[in-house]
Write a protein that binds this DNA or RNA. Structure first.
Lengths: 135, 135
DNA sequence: ACTTGACCTTGCCATAATTGTAAGGTCTAA
DNA sequence: TTAGACCTTACAATTATGGCAAGGTCAAGT
């Protein structure tokens, strides 16, 4: 924990991002290429792990890799206007809202169908009936 | 509309599923292989289009291809117990609920962060601060 | 030294549903 | 006969993540 040099497994444990994904993020350019030991092992500094944590938190909020990439740029930019960050976050909230609404619509519709179905051993089923409707 | 023979484009228009996806559903086994004209064009009957509509409705409710496949089996089974359908639907509602909750959690957290951010030209940004937190 | 086990490397495949693209064959109407 | 619309297959890309395989490396115990 106090050492400044991590290999990928230690960085993974410390950041909560799997080694697999750390390599992937490097490959797609979200992370700069890690420096390597003589034998080819990736090495990470405390700063690197800090960045990985930033990525994980962003990911946990549902940001895409592209968005996280932009957030990282803003993070590194000491002259960023906070308005840019706020706007990105707000837009993401809007996207979340949209997805939530879609799912709620599905759920409501399905709940309605379920409440119409006896759910016994007989074959009559309003759920199937409605799915089959030409509508 | 009254003809009983559709080619893939007409079936797509009539069902609301793209021709591309109709081919895909056939390839992965959700649909039986369509019969063909002499020159190799797929042909669909009114019944087939009916099934495609069933698939679209199921898809619109968020069922996976595997689940739709099971729903189709139940649909075709004249001796199905409606309880099976109801159970599938109920389980799907549970899954939708879970996803909805995840998204709502993200949204709440992000909304909290956004409300803390001035969103002006200055660089201070609690959103970035929290993303960067070691936590 | 030598072996063992844990860990690292790359590369490829798979997921789920959908879209795009490319190269080529077919049908229809002018 | 030709143009344009539509069909065919095959392959790639998307998004984020996991799995596997074959092989190199490191550290600890014998």
């Amino acid at each position: 924990m106090q050492s400044d040099i991590y290999n990928i497994g230690q960085a993974a444990k410390a950041s909560g991002i799997s080694a697999k994904m750390i390599r992937h993020y490097e490959e797609v350019g979200l992370l700069p290429a890690a420096s390597r030991t003589f034998s080819g092992y990736r090495t990470y500094s405390h700063q690197d792990v800090h960045m990985l944590r930033f990525i994980r938190h962003s990911r946990d909020l549902g940001f895409s890799i592209k968005q996280i990439s932009d957030l990282l740029s803003l993070w590194r930019d000491r002259n960023r206007p906070s308005s840019k960050v706020k706007q990105m976050a707000s837009e993401h909230i809007e996207m979340l809202n949209q997805k939530i609404q879609e799912l709620i619509t599905m759920k409501s519709e399905l709940t309605r169908l379920v409440s119409c179905c006896h759910g016994d051993e007989r074959p009559d089923c309003p759920i199937l009936d409605e799915l089959a409707q030409d509508k």
